[in-house]
Design a protein around this nucleic acid. Sequence first.
DNA 1: AAACATTGTTGACACTGGTAACTTTGTCGC
DNA 2: GCGACAAAGTTACCAGTGTCAACAATGTTT
Lengths: 206, 206
Amino acid sequence: MQATPHRPYHHGDLRRAIIETALDMLRTEKDWQFTLREVARRAGVSHAAPYKHFPDRTALLVELAMIGFDRLREALVKAKPAAPRSLLEEITPISLAYVAFGTDNPALYRLMFSAEEGRAVGMHLDQRALAVFDVVLDMLGRGQAAGTIRKRPVRGQATAAWALIHGITLLAIDGLLVPEKVGSAPLEAAIATLVDGLAIPQPNTN
Amino acid sequence: MQATPHRPYHHGDLRRAIIETALDMLRTEKDWQFTLREVARRAGVSHAAPYKHFPDRTALLVELAMIGFDRLREALVKAKPAAPRSLLEEITPISLAYVAFGTDNPALYRLMFSAEEGRAVGMHLDQRALAVFDVVLDMLGRGQAAGTIRKRPVRGQATAAWALIHGITLLAIDGLLVPEKVGSAPLEAAIATLVDGLAIPQPNTN
DNA sequence: AAACATTGTTGACACTGGTAACTTTGTCGC
DNA sequence: GCGACAAAGTTACCAGTGTCAACAATGTTT
């Protein structure tokens, strides 16, 4: 009764070990093709051991993706400036943190939004994904209240913001936007365009 | 000597047959896990036959993705209005056509931007992808020349536009933006936000 | 300590991508 | 016409995968 649902019994904390092994591979192996057997191998267990902790391969993928969303959300709230004096000052660091998360964890980020495994992954993590969405939503809502953001349907604005940053992140991961090659100019310009679209036009801000 | 590089010889036009079979599966099978053998099966040939026409599985994937980009570009130029009277009138139909292409061919669209197969797919289709990019670039360039679009780095604007539409398309494919469920409101609102970010602010357009 | 559930291992199955050897078929030089 | 040759398709095989069933070992409970 004093045990949490999943707890180590007789070997070690294998469930956690598997997850961490997988995350590690996700981090280091650039081109990662996920194989349960390889994870088991690196975790030092037999190829069937994971099945005692995950019903199937997809379940592990889902777990990893959810962890990814949690970490992304953490990264965003951490990047949120304490006392932003303008919309751009608030949006920019968050956006950069988002893109940075993606480029720092390309395989994980891809997994989070992947349709691999027959869309099964995406089906299960709506709440986590929406938690990220809510960060944006909240920010925009306060912006509208403060009068710095256009009065439009917030959900549409949030969708636009998320889609744009998400798209940029993917482009960056794919190397179509590599900072070393092209500088961060397009990235910041794109963010500026987003801000222009959200902010109420100032006389001198054309 | 009078033969083109790949021409049918003794059975039929298998190369084309394989591609079309694959495209067909891509179209109908919602959750598609690509297997060369299944394609061969449906094409009515043995599982090793495709290897006479494609060096490996990835090569076929690349071919399919390139076809996808070609079709996407066609869809965009077809959707471009003949005589748009405003930026929004020009951007909106193109954007909708883009998203529609994605939601109509989800598996194909995913494949085009997929990192599956170890990024190998994306490496080969830069030109085709950039052809799509150029459609956007061209439109924005003319907009700037005509004085309807803010004078900013065009590439940044184009990146923003593409990223946003791309991101929306993915969200739509993932069902986070299903039109039946939520109406097309967020979609259009997001496009409006994009337009706001691109267009030179009008006095009455807050 | 004996019964039991948990967790791990071994061995099998069907499937995949890929290669090699073989057979069929069309093309070409004579 | 006809044999040599190359193209295109087939069968047989390999290693590797996801998954499952049977079994062995360990910890928990009474």
